[in-house]
């Protein structure tokens, strides 16, 4: 029993583990927000929204980026550094595209006269929730940029795949989180 535990705890790298706990923590924040949404949607003065179609394009972008970062990991492990670099670059581009598309989504809503002030509604929540999600994507994009620069200009050879895997896990997480939020807004909003 003890031996098993000893071996097991060597299996997962502390940084990866830390990320998983962080993901749980971030999830709690969004759980708080979405449950607030549910509570509020039953009160008077609630207004629903029509989801701008731009959000479908951003969904495509972020889904695709999950694919590219997965390929990046594979190339890294096979030491095909050229492909690794280009895949990281593509992921970064798609990530930035996602943010830009989100911005257009917000703009579209704003033009539909869904504003901050005044009475409650799904729109106000959408700005906050999607906005916070976007912040998490931006954080990830910055990390990707650092990783990309390291792969290009860094003189040190990188062998450990842990940082790439941590990055990829986080990236998949913001992707899945986005899908959850989108479905949530479509079904309940």
């Amino acid at each position: 029993m003890e031996v098993v535990m000893n071996q097991q705890r060597k299996k997962i790298h502390p940084h990866k583990f830390t990320l998983w706990v962080a993901i749980a923590s971030i999830l709690m924040m969004f759980a708080g927000l979405t449950s607030a949404f549910i509570v509020k949607s039953n009160l008077t003065g609630w207004r629903n929204i029509k989801m701008p179609t731009v959000f479908w394009y951003s969904t495509a972008a972020i889904l695709l980026s999950s694919l590219t970062i997965q390929v990046a990991i594979r190339s890294f492990k096979q030491r095909e550094m050229k492909q690794y670099r280009s895949m990281i670059a593509w992921t970064l581009v798609l990530g930035v595209a996602f943010i830009v598309l989100q911005y257009f989504g917000f703009k579209n809503l704003w033009e539909q006269n869904i504003r901050f002030s005044g009475s409650a509604g799904a729109g106000q929540f959408l700005y906050v929730i999607f906005g916070l999600h976007a912040l998490h994507v931006i954080g990830g994009a910055i990390a990707l940029l650092v990783m990309f620069l390291k792969a290009y200009v860094g003189k040190v050879k990188l062998y450990s795949s842990v940082p790439v895997e941590v990055m990829a896990t986080y990236w998949h997480f913001v992707d899945i989180l986005w899908i959850y939020l989108l479905v949530f807004f479509i079904v309940i909003g």
């Binding site: 923590s25 924040m29 969004f30 708080g32 927000l33 005044g118 409650a120 906050v128």
Partner: peptide, 19 residues
């Protein structure tokens, strides 16, 4: 994180006029 989400909404209500 749940407190944080509550405080973010409070910040919006205070400064941006949300409800």
């Amino acid at each position: 994180p749940v407190l944080l989400s509550g405080l973010i909404l409070l910040l919006f209500d205070r400064n941006l006029g949300t409800s």
